[in-house]
Each structure stands twice: as structure tokens, then as C-alpha cells.
Design a protein around this nucleic acid. Structure first.
Lengths: 320, 320
DNA sequence: CTGAAAGCGCTTACAG
DNA sequence: CTGAAAGCGCTTACAG
């Protein structure tokens, strides 16, 4: 049809007919069917991101970045929730989300559910993974992105050590692996400085889980510095410290991860590591485009490197 | 084809051939094309939600509810970002998102961009709107959902008044209308009690905007109670009060809106109105299903009514 | 510059 | 119970 040509801005249509067709389109309120177009073109115009709880800041911000880049590229984004790490649930998600005509999937593999989903993606569909850590020894068949959490954790830990703290305790978010990038960075900084290496204490993602994890630490006067797996945990930790009568930062220093918009308004304002999740999301889309259309070099990452933002929850180690 | 019958669990296939086909499907790793299926069936299996910034808690939680209900109904959810209220941007979003074969759209019309998008949805495509307020006088051609923000604001305001505060100040989130539901409820409660009605002070959605809006209020000893448009704003307000040396709740009471997971860990823990955004999201999907398949009564809403959660930021008015 | 033909991968009647 | 035919609404060569 000629109308196909005009809605696609193809050349080879006279100005007169183009105007005529445009007029009729307007008049009939015609809109092409995306579905039919995809089927005939044989390529989808959507990218699906598989993730767990998008109410968590990191995932929401990454999603925002994905949406932005996808929109610029003319792609729709469908969101595929991973609500459980159980194999059956993961399989159901894959079956639901991965059809072969899909435009590709971005999986946020920061937790067990994500990692399992990643492994279960059927071959042939374009995929890029946002990992906790870019382990280059592990040669994968799909491209990956990651923020440098290891370096970030090491930096934060080193900062605390320089402040004179004997060691730094860590309250960890759940990880996709036995030892997350943040844990690794924290541990290696401790080792490098010859500081004692405490057990990391496990928490979830929420302020409540941070609060619960921190109660034991708060009771121990020996702990004077705690690095939290994210800012929400840090909020819970601050609450636990307050309850225990531990002044921050005079009695104990607290550092977070993420730099959520609220962090600067915590009491006290939180020292934290800023992570560019939105940039990471844009990088995922760029990489996915590259997978779908190879040729040309891989795109350069745009995500900003992690950066320690010093505010008011950190200070010199207390003198006994 | 017979395989169509087996992948759709249609009756009238012998067990033998069914098993045979299933075997081959497994072997070839065959997956049906969602796109082809939609085209032939003439009905889409996706619902798109149009919203601005999904990093904001209410939207993220509603999206979560939508996803959950959509998944249960076998629908995919595509997210359509409204990044600006400018008419051109809204039109672009509509053109991008609303094709006639779409399965329907849920628009979050809590802000100007959303309201404009709602108006611009082309006829013929199923739509349900999440509104700030369910104004029944306004007879619309599409179903709407809303939390009862007006009652919620009135309740919170009444609670503060009972505590002995002379009046209650309000820091408002942006609204889709001149006078939002929260503002209306706040104002009417004040009037009903014969209390003075101050100007509402305008803010954004973030802690920073709350902080900035609160600085003037903090300086005024006459203000002893402030109702915040959301919890993030309340966080900024708490910060401003701290900076101004106003003790909470002894010198000034603060109430939020939403009950985000962090609210219970603010310093002090925040008194706020809990809003069931996820339930609202599920209601949107149920309503959309009803639009697509009328027949039968409209579904009953499941979203919990707003509820005041009293914590530690509210107390009796200070005595002069 | 414009139109008729075939095909994308399914599903839905309709025959066997 | 199973298969051949037509069609969903586009696009992509191919003719005029």
C-alpha cells in the first residue's frame, strides 16, 4: 500500500498523494498496528526488563534509565517481575516473557532470582545482564554491565579506616553470590590495611532489616564504624543507634550505598556512595542495541563511576 | 495446525499426538510468537501504564500492584513514561504508546502530564484512569479509581486539631488541579473546626522540596503543626525543623502521607497516612479487564482505605 | 511514482 | 480426531 510508504516516510511518494493520504489518516484517526508491523518486519520493538521489586531504589532508577534510552531508540519497555527465586517461579517468568520474536531482554541479576532467570533465558534471544560485578574471567555469551561496587566499597572502607577506626563492620544486602562485590571490596580494604575482618551481617533491602541487623552491633561499644549495603539499611541503622544512645558520628560512623534522594535529609545527613543506576540502565539499552545490530564497536559506557559523598554520619573514631 | 491446539490446551487432540507434539516442541525448543498470536486473535495481551517518574514511591507501588494483577490475568505490562507535561511531549507519548491493537492503558493522572495524557487518549482504546479524586459529578466515558485522599487529609488534620493545635499548615505536592484532594480535605477539616485556613505552601515530591518549603514555616513559632503532601516531603520538613531548633513533636508536629517503608525509621518515626497504592494498581487492572470484557458487574475495589498511622512526630500543641 | 502479490506466524472456522 | 484454507494488518520485493 502507498499508505505504508507515507507512514514510514519512505521516499518515492509524490507530495500530492502524500498530503492526500495524510489527510485521510488524520480524518479516520488511523493508527498503524504495532503488532502487525512487528510481525511483518520480523523484529520486535520492545525490550523487556526482568527484575525483582521495582519499588527498591536501585531497580527503579535503573528502570528509569532503561526507559529513557529505549524511548530514544524507539523501543517500548515491558517490565517482567521476578517475584520469587524459586525455580518454578523463574521458569514461569521466562515462559511468560521470552518469546523468540521479543526484541531482547535486560535482566537485573543482582539477586538469586535474577541470576537464575539469566541462566534460563532460552538461546537465540538477545540479552544483556546487569550484574553485581563484572567478572571478566567468566566469559559469557552475552554482554554484561555493572557498577564498580567492589571499588566503591573499598573506597568507603578506606575512608573510614583513615578516620582512625580500628575496623569497619558491614551490614550486607542479599547477594546473588556467596560473596557480593560490596563484601569483597570491604574485605579487601580491611585486609590491605591490616585491620580485623569481622563477619558481615546479613540484612534485606529495607530500613527495618537494617534496624534489626544493627541492634547487636549498636550494643557493642567496640564497633565504631559500619558500612551499610544500601541507604535504606543505613536509615534503619541510624535508628538503632539512636535507640541505643550511640551518637552518630561521635560514637559510631555510618556509611550507606546508593545516595538516594532522601539520604541528604537523614538525621544526620548520610555519608554514602553515589551509584549511577540510571546511567547503568542507559548502558544496558546501548549494549542490547549492539547485540541486535552488531557491526561497529561496542558502545562506550556512560554510567558515572561510584563516588563517595561525605556528609555528616562519619567522623573520627571515638577516643576511649 | 495441530500444534496450535496443543499449545492452547484445546480439546480434541488425542493423547498420543498431544504427547508427540509436546515432545517435538521440547526438542526444537519451540516457543510461539506472541506477536503472531496477538495479530491473529485480534486482541493484545498487554496493558500499558502511562505515568511520570516511577522512582516516586506511590507510582512505583501502584506499578507493582498493576504488574501483579496483570500477571495473574496473563497480561504483559509496558511502561510508558510521561517525562514532561508539555503538550508536544504528551502527544509524542500517546503516539508512541497508543496503537489501536493495544490491550488498554492505565493512566496515572495525578499530575498535569497525566491528566493531559488522559484527555488525549484516542477513542476506541480501553482506558482506566487513576485519579487524584473520584469526582462523581464529572461523568466520564472511562472508569476511574482513586484513593480517598480527601477523607485522609481531613482525618489527619482533625487529629492534629484534637491535639490542641490552633491550626494546621500544609505543604502540598504538585497537583493535577488547582486544588488537590488532599488540599480540599485539609481545608474542609480546618473550616469545620472553625480554625484559621493558612495558604498551602507548594512543594515538589522530594525531600529537598519539602525542606525548602519548610524553612519559612520553621522560622514561625506560630506554626505548630504541619501536614505534608507525602512522606518524602515530611523528611525534608523534619530536617528543616531540626536545623531551626524546633523539637518534634514538642515544638511542632509533623504528619506525612503514604507510609513509605522508611517512614517508621525517620527521626522521630513519622506519623502518616497509609495509602494502599498496590491495591489501587490491582483495582486498575480489574477495571480494565471489565472494560475489555463487559458483562457482569463492575469489580469491587480491593484497595484498603487510607488509615492514619500514629507514630512519634505528633503531640499536643506546645503551651506558650 | 503507484499498486498487486506474497508472506510474517499464528488462530479460527470448515472439511474430511 | 486431524489437516487445508483464509485471514489478522502490516511490509517487502516486484511489476507496471
Amino acid at each position: 500500500m502507498t499508505v505504508s510508504r507515507v507512514i514510514n516516510d519512505s521516499p518515492g511518494v509524490s507530495d500530492a498523494t502524500r498530503r492526500h493520504v495524510l489527510g485521510i489518516i488524520e480524518e479516520m484517526n488511523f493508527r498503524p498496528s504495532r503488532v502487525a508491523r512487528e510481525l511483518s518486519r520480523g523484529r520486535s520493538t520492545s525490550v523487556t526488563v526482568m527484575t525483582s521489586d521495582t519499588t527498591l531504589y536501585g531497580r527503579a532508577a535503573l528502570l528509569q534509565g532503561v526507559e529513557e534510552a529505549a524511548r530514544a531508540a524507539g523501543l517500548q519497555v515491558v517490565i517482567g517481575m521476578l517475584d520469587s527465586p524459586r525455580p518454578a517461579a523463574v521458569k514461569a517468568a521466562i515462559d511468560r516473557l521470552c518469546d523468540p520474536t521479543s526484541g531482547g531482554v535486560i535482566v537485573i541479576a543482582w539477586d538469586v532470582a535474577g541470576v537464575r532467570a539469566l541462566r534460563a533465558i532460552p538461546p537465540g534471544i538477545p540479552v544483556v545482564a546487569a550484574l553485581e560485578i563484572n567478572d571478566t574471567r567468566d566469559s559469557r555469551e552475552y554482554p554484561t554491565t555493572a557498577l564498580d561496587d567492589r571499588a566503591a566499597a573499598a573506597t568507603a572502607t578506606g575512608y573510614l579506616l583513615e578516620l582512625g577506626h580500628r575496623t569497619v563492620h558491614h551490614i550486607a544486602v542479599p547477594s546473588s553470590t556467596r560473596s557480593s562485590a560490596r563484601v569483597q571490596g570491604w574485605r579487601s580494604a580491611l585486609r590491605a590495611a591490616g585491620a580485623p575482618v569481622p563477619e558481615a551481617v546479613a540484612a534485606g533491602w529495607t530500613p527495618r532489616s537494617g534496624y534489626e541487623a544493627a541492634r547487636q552491633l549498636a550494643a557493642d561499644r567496640e564497633v565504631t564504624a559500619v558500612l551499610c549495603g544500601n541507604d535504606d539499611i543505613a536509615l534503619g541503622v541510624l535508628h538503632a543507634m539512636r535507640e541505643a544512645g550511640r551518637a552518630v558520628p561521635d560514637s559510631v560512623s555510618v556509611v550507606g550505598f546508593d545516595d538516594i534522594p532522601a539520604a541528604a535529609f537523614f538525621a544526620p545527613p548520610l555519608t554514602t556512595v553515589r551509584l549511577d543506576f540510571a546511567g547503568l540502565g542507559r548502558d544496558c539499552v546501548a549494549l542490547l542495541q549492539h547485540v541486535r545490530d552488531p557491526g561497529g564497536a561496542a558502545p562506550d559506557p556512560v554510567a558515572a563511576p561510584p563516588r563517595l559523598v561525605v556528609r555528616d554520619t562519619t567522623g573520627p573514631a571515638p577516643r576511649h
